[in-house]
Design a protein around this nucleic acid. Structure first.
Lengths: 338, 338
DNA sequence: CTGTTAGCGCTTTCAA
DNA sequence: TTGAAAGCGCTAACAG
């Protein structure tokens, strides 16, 4: 079943069928009507590849993420797809699994499928792959990596502001012993968050806090928190590099028989959906996946459609205060609700 | 840049390049070597669509899910992709968002991209769409819906056994007032789980328990639990239709100042990753996404490759006992660890 | 073992 | 407004 059969049934040429499918305005309403009916009757679905081959446009946008299993990403994927659908485009999602071999696979999938643009939402992207996209003039958008030029856009997250708001909130509650549980230091994104924390403390004249390394998952947060609790100086507040880490930390604290936030305050990062339902609900620095996805898609789409140059975009995180933060022990009456 | 340029550089015909790419054994090692070098040098990536068009095989398998944001699915997606990659195939993921309009979009994407098979992991699939796949002889595999025939396979989850194990565990702990928080009753998958619960109670001679309807998300579990707590008879144990629901319920219980499992025991369903890190860690009926994905992919792949008929497969859930279940209040010493 | 060539299903000039 | 026909990049039958 193909366009020719439709053409035959509608008694027109294949060109006319093609025009109808593509919504050309150079087709008489009557003809269009006839063709539509033939399409309906045959339940014809135009072959996407053949369309792409013929036209040179794939209407496909790539989205490269690290790990679909990390709750931050599914929400991003969903938002990206929703907006792509609005623009009549499609999305090809690929996972790197934080693995450079898989990363190569992701890149070649994108190249082989001739995507019209790629959103690289993982921080670990080898320079040489980027070059492959550049030489083929495929628009790119990064999350907080690389800089805008030609067909490359960049979305930068103001981590300093986000972490700053968190630290301010914590300091305002009287905390002085503030610890940080980072993500895996081999990940650029994790290092950036950690540096924002260190810088923030320094600029406020607070001595460098306790540091532990996690893995951006609950397990790592749990272990890191356990180490923190058995250390010499126990922190009264802990910032985590992401919410999963904070959730793991929460568990370790409870296991020790300590309470959050009465004994220790916790702040996460990302504001994934589940954070509103942890015990207690997590105070966290929210990063809008919706906004990131929208900005990313539009950057790619406008590069492609209007030949726009790459741009530099900024996204502001926002502190979401819930129940996991409270006054430092001994500092004023505790007013939180358990 | 295309196969012809590679052919020219390697001084062979396009057919030879094609053969090299496809790993044909009818090419002299030397020739193959020359072609490989040319490909490297030109950084040539064969156009997937053209390949599919020429060969009639897409090497693409569709995976239709309800909602990427529901933690059950990302793990399924990951497993499915991993196994597809092992077989050198690719995956096209589509979300229905529980919306019938989006569902139609998903189906037409699959049809337009000429996928080699589709795993339908959402329970709400309109009969008429299924027919579209059937008439085009596209292998299908369902999760717990439909029956095996021709090119259609089905994976059935033994909900009765899973729920049975949970009920047995709970009853063994002395509970008699057992409630169930279901998913949205408009979803078949939710109804199936609920029926398994009702049937299980009945077969054990226990009267029909309390029932509340949730939405398979934390918010619904929270609200349903709140209703349960303000009802006349307070249950001492609650089974939830999925883990997110259970997590929401946990929050509602804590807000009332009650403890889990001392005052109320909770059992979830699915065993999503985060369930090991809730407070307390959730006892739940685990469903292996890995197994489901593997079985589903293989069913599709063998239908396609070996022309195998559709099969009926079974997956057994397994109870994972953690900390959210304990003896019914008043029944024996409480021995759980908080 | 290698090359020639006719498609695959659609788009898109160019004419009519 | 419509049709004829030449590709798009690759595969596969057929020759050699």
């Amino acid at each position: 079943m193909n366009i020719r059969e439709v053409a035959r049934l509608a008694k027109v040429s294949t060109a006319t069928v093609s025009r109808t499918i593509n919504g050309s305005d150079k087709v008489t309403p009557e003809t269009k009507e006839r063709v539509q009916r033939a399409i309906e009757e045959l339940k014809f679905y135009p072959n996407t590849w053949a369309r792409a081959l013929g036209s040179g446009r794939s209407s496909l946008y790539g989205l490269i993420i690290s790990d679909i299993t990390n709750p931050f990403f599914p929400e991003l994927v969903k938002s990206f797809e929703d907006i792509a659908v609005q623009y009549g485009q499609e999305v090809l999602v690929a996972n790197t699994n934080y693995d450079s071999e898989r990363m190569e696979l992701c890149v070649s999938r994108m190249l082989q499928r001739k995507v019209d643009g790629v959103a690289i939402m993982t921080s670990e992207m080898d320079e040489r792959w980027i070059r492959e996209f550049n030489t083929r003039e495929i628009p790119l958008v990064f999350l907080d990596t690389g800089t805008a030029h030609d067909l490359t856009s960049n979305i930068s997250v103001d981590y300093a502001a986000g972490v700053g708001a968190a630290v301010e909130h914590i300091v305002g509650l009287g905390h002085t012993e503030i610890a940080f549980i980072s993500g895996p230091m081999m990940l650029r994104s994790a290092r950036v968050r950690r540096e924002a924390f260190v810088g923030c403390l320094k600029s406020r004249g607070i001595g460098a806090g306790l540091m532990e390394e996690g893995n951006h998952q609950a397990s790592g947060g749990h272990e890191a928190m356990a180490r923190l609790l058995s250390g010499e100086t126990r922190p009264t507040a802990v910032l985590a590099s992401n919410d999963m880490t904070a959730i793991g930390a929460l568990g370790a604290i409870h296991e020790r028989g300590l309470r959050v936030p009465e004994d220790i305050s916790i702040v996460g990062f990302d504001d994934i959906q589940i954070s509103a339902f942890t015990q207690p609900a997590l105070t966290t620095v929210g990063l809008s996946r919706d906004e990131i996805a929208r900005v990313a898609f539009r950057a790619l789409y406008s590069s492609r459609q209007d030949g726009a140059r790459g741009g530099e975009y900024a996204v502001q995180p926002a502190l979401v205060v819930r129940r996991s933060t409270g006054p430092a022990p001994g500092k004023g009456e505790f007013s939180g609700r358990r």
